Amino acid sequence: MFKDSLRNKINLVFSITLVLLASLFIASVKYDHAKFEEHNAAQERAIAHYLYDYYLKTGKIDKAYLESQNVSLITDKGDVVQIERYFKEKGKYKKYAVDTYRLQRIILINNDRFKLFLENRNKPRYPVKRIIVFSIVLMFILFLYLWIVQSLKPLSELKEKIKTFSEGNLDISCSSDKDDEIAEVANEFDHAVTMIRELLQSRQLFLRAIMHELKTPIAKGRLMSEMLPDEKSKARMHSIFERLNLLIDEFAKIEKITSKNFKLNIKPYKMSDLVEASIDILMVENPERLVTIEIKKDYIVKVDFELFTLAMKNLLDNAIKYSTDKHVTVKILEDHVEIINKAEALKEPLENYFKPFHTSKSGLGLGIYIVKSILDIHHMELGYRYEEGNNIFTVR
């Protein structure tokens, strides 16, 4: 299929131009040849009439006149016999006939007074001037084409840099010192990249500063919790601070995901192992009371362990939080996982919950956004259906 690009349009325009130019050149050459043939035929008839009239007056053939018309009389008897046989075989042995014999234009004049075979040595002129003109036009068109294609080269470079930028590489420069529209676009895009880079850097600095500052009170809190006399309270406080520390680490991962500044470490894992790891990072007491795993058929999936378990953990966390019985069933099937909980159906289509900070009565705002972002990176899909009072989320 023809790609509707600017370069292809330019190629098409110049190809049509070259075809039209070649057609015009061929048509002009054919026209000149036709005019020559017409003039040559009229000249040959005039020669035949002149020779007949001159012979009636003088009884001779005017050879000087023939020479002046660049026409010669064929006198060799052997040649005359062969040419005469040739005209008879072609059915052209008449009072007047013209044909080509061995690349020679032969005129037969056969009347009641004489019989002559003449060779017309007039040839069409080689169209030197026309070839020169068309060659100059062709060179100009080719120069114009190369000039335009060369001027589009920065556009291809800008496309590659935009592609690199879309992949998360912000360390690019596309500024141009030229004075054309492409350079203006490149400079504006370079300015936008600089602004985005500075904005992301300031955001990252801000978030990292906050997370760093939070680490200090958490560390102090853990230290203080160790001084509590009650072992049960100590364990509970220790669990709370561990949870806060884990949340900060997750926020750091989320920040990297949303800024496309994360390098995946893809390895094969059993889906059952990934689900169990996701349950572990929920950091809840007696997780078997909250989550039931049903393995119909375990399978291997290639994922980044930290990111994928974070996505599964968010799904499990949401499922537990919004279930009516605080229980979730995880089914591992042949090629997908189902997270099932008893709860009300989603009030809106699942796609609406993919937006960050989505708010509704049933929640599921940032958590689903994080899950969708991680699954997109892994080229996986998140599905949803409601059956018999159960919400069923599918990771496929």
Results as ranks from 00 to 15, higher is better:
372 K>P: 01
317 D>I: 01
287 P>G: 04
251 F>W: 03
336 H>E: 11
308 F>N: 02
307 L>F: 09
272 S>D: 07
387 E>I: 15
342 K>P: 01
316 L>M: 12
335 D>G: 06
322 Y>D: 07
265 N>H: 12
272 S>Q: 11
323 S>P: 04
276 E>Y: 02
249 D>V: 05
251 F>T: 09
334 E>A: 15
355 K>Y: 11
381 E>T: 05
333 L>G: 03
318 N>E: 14
325 D>V: 10
275 V>N: 00
343 A>W: 04
266 I>T: 13
346 L>G: 02
246 L>A: 12
366 L>I: 09
267 K>W: 06
249 D>F: 07
313 K>A: 10
330 V>D: 05
265 N>G: 07
330 V>Y: 09
372 K>G: 01
313 K>D: 03
377 I>S: 03
246 L>V: 00
323 S>T: 07
367 G>V: 05
319 A>W: 04
311 A>P: 06
348 E>T: 08
314 N>S: 12
377 I>C: 01
386 Y>E: 14
354 F>Q: 11
378 H>N: 13
330 V>I: 14
328 V>W: 01
306 E>M: 06
247 L>P: 00
259 S>L: 06
317 D>N: 14
327 H>A: 08
369 Y>W: 09
311 A>V: 09
358 H>L: 06
314 N>P: 04
385 R>E: 14
338 E>A: 02
257 I>D: 00
274 L>E: 09
336 H>S: 11
366 L>D: 13
357 F>V: 13
368 I>D: 01
368 I>H: 08
291 V>T: 05
286 N>R: 12
310 L>Y: 08
253 K>W: 06
261 N>D: 15
310 L>P: 06
257 I>S: 00
256 K>L: 14
328 V>R: 00
268 P>G: 09
363 G>K: 12
287 P>T: 04
247 L>Y: 08
306 E>G: 07
